[in-house]
Design a protein around this nucleic acid. Structure first.
Lengths: 238, 238
DNA sequence: GACTTTTAATTGTCTGACAATTTAAATGCA
DNA sequence: TGCATTTAAATTGTCAGACAATTAAAAGTC
């Protein structure tokens, strides 16, 4: 019911920002003034401000004419928070591999038509580069996964919708720990690289149907790989 | 480079949680002990802990055998953060109505096949109830929007994938302020209600194609309405 | 006019204290 | 003994005051 003072103050300021009563780059009163206004001590005000800083809602500057300023939430900041939240959610809530996989590929397939329409040369180049990397000899599983993430990110960015990019960043990156559990044999990799090539080709030809088809197969194949890992684990324990 | 001590300490503890060195419900050392360990004062430790609390990474309890505990990130907590972040991102970054709309409906269409397959009676009931509400006389624009959000939420939940629900919660709710700018005439509403009915009918019949078609039309129609509002505004200013 | 120094404002950090809260242990009582 | 009550201890929440570090503007100097 009656939460901490610092939480209450943080909420009051947060609401002011969300409702537009405090606008971007506006300076908040100094800590001493806020302490007066809210009738609390400066440490309490500081705790409230740190809460807001943790959500990237404000930034602080020292020195004369410094202070706390309403922060423009940048895409990178939003990405970072989205990734942290998604990663924790997946690691702490027994989200099954299937559910995470399904969500991720469903959203990626949602991007496909836009990507086919809007892809630029640099997106294709990035994807081709990752495909080449994925075929390299002696690549560790982790490096393969990292390249996989980069490939899919290029695909999503090709859709040219920053909101989709931001949403998917969380899903794709958050899945990496789960993907890292998978051991990729040479044959696995060849199949995945083949599908990646289909996707790149489809985008180059601006053929959304091809891309969608390849993504559907990739989704199914990834789920199969995940199941194999879980099955192998289960039999090892028995 | 050398950020605040409280930020460094928060990062150290956050990393420990993300990497699993601190597990759910584990108790952190007391503030005094942490202050000793990190060789800083207690207020500095407290600022760090408040940062983590703002991200729902820990919770604190007063009293003997109280302290800070690693928090299991619940879906509601994750929803809330997702919504705050998305709302701010949209309101602060001149994300165009088109881009937000496109992202939202793209993701909703990604849910459609799963929803058609897995929808339960209660999802359908919730959607029908919202449709009825939307047809009520004298409904304000805001109430109409709120009902619209509830309708689409039921649709997303029908897909039965909590990760998709969580991702879309942000997109749908964050768009509400933009949607609230639109004035819905009786004719607008009738058209939207018609499409909503198509969606509900399609789900009931487990016909994904129908649902997809209706969502596509709804996306196009919503964009049109958005454009009209912007055009009206522009002409008023001139 | 360009450069340097001073000054004032502000955040960052520390120390020490006390209040509020909560659990475990101690105590008292039947 | 068994149960209720009180006490004690640990811990977070809050406060007050102080000083250090940083920064930009203002004042001074050549």
């Amino acid at each position: 019911m009656t939460s901490d003072l610092s939480a209450q103050i943080a909420k009051a300021i947060r609401d002011a920002i969300i409702e537009g009563r405090l606008i971007v780059d506006e300076r908040l009163p100094s800590e001493a003034e806020l302490a007066d206004q809210f009738d609390v001590s400066r440490p309490t005000v500081r705790e409230a401000l740190k809460r807001l800083a943790a959500q990237s809602l404000i930034r602080t500057q020292r020195g004369a004419f410094g202070g706390a300023f309403v922060n423009r939430l940048s895409y990178p900041d939003a990405y970072a928070q989205q990734i942290t939240t998604s990663t924790l959610l997946l690691s702490m809530n027994e989200v099954s591999f299937d559910v995470a996989c399904e969500a991720r590929f469903a959203m990626e397939r949602a991007c496909a038509p836009f990507a086919a329409q809007r892809r630029q040369a640099d997106h294709l180049a990035a994807m081709r580069a990752e495909i080449t990397r994925q075929g390299a000899e002696g690549l560790t599983d982790e490096a393969f996964c990292a390249s996989d993430v980069a490939f899919h990110r290029a695909l999503v960015d090709a859709a040219g919708n920053p909101v989709l990019s931001y949403q998917l960043a969380g899903a794709v990156e958050a899945m990496q720990p789960l993907m890292n559990m998978i051991t990729f044999t040479a044959r696995n990799r060849a199949r995945i690289i083949g599908l990646h090539t289909d996707i790149a080709d489809g985008l180059e030809a601006r053929n959304a149907a091809t891309v969608d088809q390849a993504l559907a197969e990739l989704a199914a194949y990834t789920e199969t790989l995940g199941h194999d890992v879980l099955a192998a684990r289960a039999s090892k324990e028995a």
